[in-house]
Structures are given as C-alpha cells and as structure tokens.
Design a protein around this nucleic acid. Structure first.
Length: 254
DNA sequence: ATGCCTTATTTCATAAGA
C-alpha cells in the first residue's frame, strides 16, 4: 500500500499538478491539506479512480482524503476540536483499506504572543484526546498532515534563525511528543537530494534551491503500521518547476 | 530569512501563511 500526504496550498491552483502527480506516483491513499475550497474538484481525481472525503469552508484551511482502496467511516473534525472561536476545517478522518487515516492541518500559531499560538496548543492537546480512543480501536492508524511544528532543531535549516519563533518552541514540541506517547511512530521521509528531510521551503528568495527548509509535514503511524513500512521519501520533484506548492509530498510504502 | 512569494476574496488591496 502506498500512502501519501501533501499540503497543496490550494487544490484549485494545484489541480493540474495534483492530477499529474497522482498518475505518476499512484498512491492508494492521499491526505491533502490547505485545499482552500468548499467545493473539492472530485471529478478530476475521480477519473483516476479516487474516492474523495473533503472538509473545506472556502478561502482558508481545508483538508481531504483521497482513496482508491475504500473510503468508509468518514468523520470531518473531531470531538472536542477547538475553533477560533468558530470551527475551522482542519481535520478529517476515514478508514481506507483497513487503515484509519487522519489528514490534519494544525493551526499556524503566528507568533508566540498571539492568541493563535494558544489556539494551536489547545488544538494539539484536543487532537491527542481524540486520538486515544481511535488508537484503541484501530491497530493500523496513520496521522498525516501539516503539523506546523519542526520536531527537532535538525528539522530547520538554521535553528538560530528561529529563536523566538513559533514552530520550534518547547510547548509545541512537547505536544508532538505527547502524540507519539500514544503509540505513534514518526515515519521520516528519505530526502531525494542532500541530507535534510525538509518538506517545506518558503517561496521567496530561492529558499528551495538553497535547501533552506523545514520538516513540518509528518506521518505518525501506529506501531503495527510503522512496522510494515518498506520505504518513505519526500518528493522534492513535486516542489520544482512552475507553479508548485510550497510543501513537498511525503510518500510511504507499507 | 525581515513575509522579499502565493493564495483566494469583500480584488487594483488585504489577510494569511511559517
């Protein structure tokens, strides 16, 4: 089985690239984030054999799961999910080919003194609470998405450049640790070039070409699923060329 | 490495992203 996750930064703007990428990569299950639409282009991916579970409200956020191995028990959001203060489209889950799949887009946080930072931490804490019973009920589970947290200093191009910023603070990293302590394993993608497992590079100033990136997109797999992993890579090819997302997909074979 | 790009929308400007 091939499982992937990708923050596409607008599925509308990225649709031609997404379709080409699906046809070339042939994943069985794809988690998408930042779809930025209330009307997912289901027909375009349906032609490639994918069923779609989408949760989007328009301009901001938006998540989806594509599957060609079944798509059951679809649930947008999760119990106890905080809003700001209204609900936002940041999580969707479904059962696909025997795997419980979550696609999440964790709040950015903006700055450490912004109310969005407290929202981010509350959202991650609520996610942990909602995941606990799901892990008890599903031996094979994958929590995939854009976590907006770099788990370690090795996951940013220069730790010194991030002092005082969100994405690297101790409380954010502790929230990820708390998720892993539920029994989840960080499946780190293999970089196709260089040694940094980055998944995001800013659009500006040639950051991608200098490999000045961050690893903020993650695949957290239950032990049973992680034990079945045969390969995992970060598809930097999808970040190249004209009109890319600022994130690269992670592809996991398991 | 400072939103210097990119997105969608209440568009020729703004908010948001990390």
């Amino acid at each position: 089985m091939r499982l992937a996750t990708w923050n596409v930064n607008s599925v509308t703007a990225r649709l031609p690239r997404l379709v080409d990428w699906l046809a070339a990569t042939k994943p069985d299950i794809v988690c998408l984030q930042e779809t930025k639409t209330a009307e997912f282009p289901e027909a375009a991916v349906g032609e490639l054999g994918y069923a779609v579970a989408a949760h989007g409200t328009g301009r901001w956020n938006g998540v989806a799961i594509l599957s060609r191995v079944g798509l059951d028990e679809v649930d947008p959001g999760f119990p106890g999910e905080p809003g700001f203060p209204d609900p936002e489209a940041r999580a969707i889950r479904a059962t696909c080919g025997g795997v419980r799949v979550w696609s999440v887009y964790v709040p950015n946080g903006r700055t450490v003194d912004d109310p969005h930072y407290a929202y981010k931490l509350a959202w991650l804490a609520a996610l942990r609470e909602a995941l606990a019973p799901e892990l008890a009920g599903h031996e094979r589970l994958a929590l995939c998405g854009d976590f907006n947290v770099a788990p370690t200093d090795a996951d940013v191009f220069d730790p010194g450049a991030f002092v005082g910023s969100t994405h690297v603070t101790e409380p954010e990293r502790a929230a990820l640790t708390a998720l892993r302590e539920l029994g989840l394993v960080d499946v780190v993608g293999r970089p196709l070039k260089g040694s940094n497992p980055f998944t995001y590079w800013d659009y500006r100033a040639g950051m991608f070409h200098q490999d000045l990136g961050m690893r903020i997109d993650l695949v957290y797999a239950s032990r049973a699923l992680a034990d079945a992993v045969t390969d995992a890579y970060i598809d930097r090819e999808a970040r190249k060329g004209k009109g890319p997302s600022d994130h690269a997909p992670i592809v996991v074979d398991c």
